[in-house]
Design a protein around this nucleic acid. Structure first.
Length: 284
DNA sequence: GGTGCGATCGCCT
DNA sequence: GGCGATCGCACCG
């Protein structure tokens, strides 16, 4: 899987580089982020086949984030992540997949063993603090700290609700010229994809999701659709090398949702008629 | 559709 | 100097 070669191919832009609209080399086409009209943003609002939306969305405050990690990871499902760009455009996506990283004893966590470094400092900050870190040299992932020393929730997938055209522009900017057009469900179906689509950069690291003016979380009617039976608990992705912690069901996603990055049919089959309150095996 | 592989570089030991 | 909470693409059936 891993290669040691370091060719100087530039198929992808580093995610932590300035977005294409900010680039000054004159070679990259400007995307539409800076100039999309409010009308086009309104048009891009699409009705979700899975949830309904309404105008009385409520921003989530600090108290919401102060929950045990795995519990918060499940609570995130159905909530709406909002990203307000510099030009006022609001990008919205409903969270449909998360992972809990418990810190301390959790060997798959960046903060395993209570290890605190410059990079993972945000994991130890107050619940609701954003932790953005680079991975594989070219991608970013976004977490939100929870209650518990070094604990955080990784946001893995969103269902795009508004601003899809802008998201597509941000995603396309990172892909090879001539690549096929991305479907809406492909815009945010992965932890690094959602960072690209929402233009979440490293500068968001250590910012407070409860009070920030550029990114926040909302609760809306979508919550009503996230009944217990729809939540699948499965082992986390990409942590196979961490022994028993690799098998713990700390990934949560909405069953049957097309925007989930990786399905776990085995976990879904095992759910059966079991309540999700039990299926994690963690007494959540 | 599923699978395998290469890309790429910051962080950590 | 090794590794990694990923992704896109080519290839195959």
């Amino acid at each position: 899987m891993t290669t040691r070669k370091r060719k100087k191919s530039l198929l992808l832009l580093p995610p932590h580089s300035e977005s294409p609209g900010d680039q000054t080399d004159g070679k990259t086409p400007k995307r539409s982020v800076q100039c999309q009209s409010s009308e086009s943003v309104h048009k891009s609002l699409s009705f979700s086949p899975y949830f309904s939306t309404r105008d009385d969305a409520v921003r989530l405050t600090s108290s919401f984030f102060d929950q045990p990690c795995a519990h918060l990871a499940k609570e995130f499902l159905g909530k709406v992540l909002v990203r307000k760009l510099a030009d006022g455009t609001e990008l919205r996506g409903r969270i449909v997949e998360t992972e809990a990283y418990l810190g301390g004893e959790d060997k798959a966590s960046h903060s395993a063993g209570g290890k605190r470094t410059e990079r993972n400092t945000a994991m130890f900050m107050k619940p609701g603090t954003i932790y953005v870190y680079p991975i594989y040299g070219i991608y970013l992932c976004m977490n939100v700290s929870s209650r518990g020393e070094g604990a955080a929730v990784l946001l893995r997938s969103l269902e795009p609700l508004s601003g899809q055209d802008v998201m597509r522009g941000l995603r396309v900017a990172k892909r090879k010229e001539g690549a096929k057009t991305l479907k809406d469900k492909e815009l945010c179906n992965g932890p690094s994809k959602l960072c690209q689509a929402l233009d979440l950069r490293r500068c968001f690291d250590r910012r407070d999701l409860a009070i920030d003016t550029d990114v926040w979380l909302e609760r809306d009617q979508g919550d009503d659709a996230v009944c217990c039976r729809e939540v699948v608990s499965a082992p986390r992705i990409g942590v196979e090398s961490h022994g028993e912690w690799a098998t713990k069901p700390l990934r949560f996603y909405l069953r049957g949702h097309p925007c989930v990055s990786v399905l776990n049919r085995e976990a879904e089959r095992q759910m059966g008629s079991q309540s999700c309150m039990d299926s994690s095996g963690l007494g959540l």
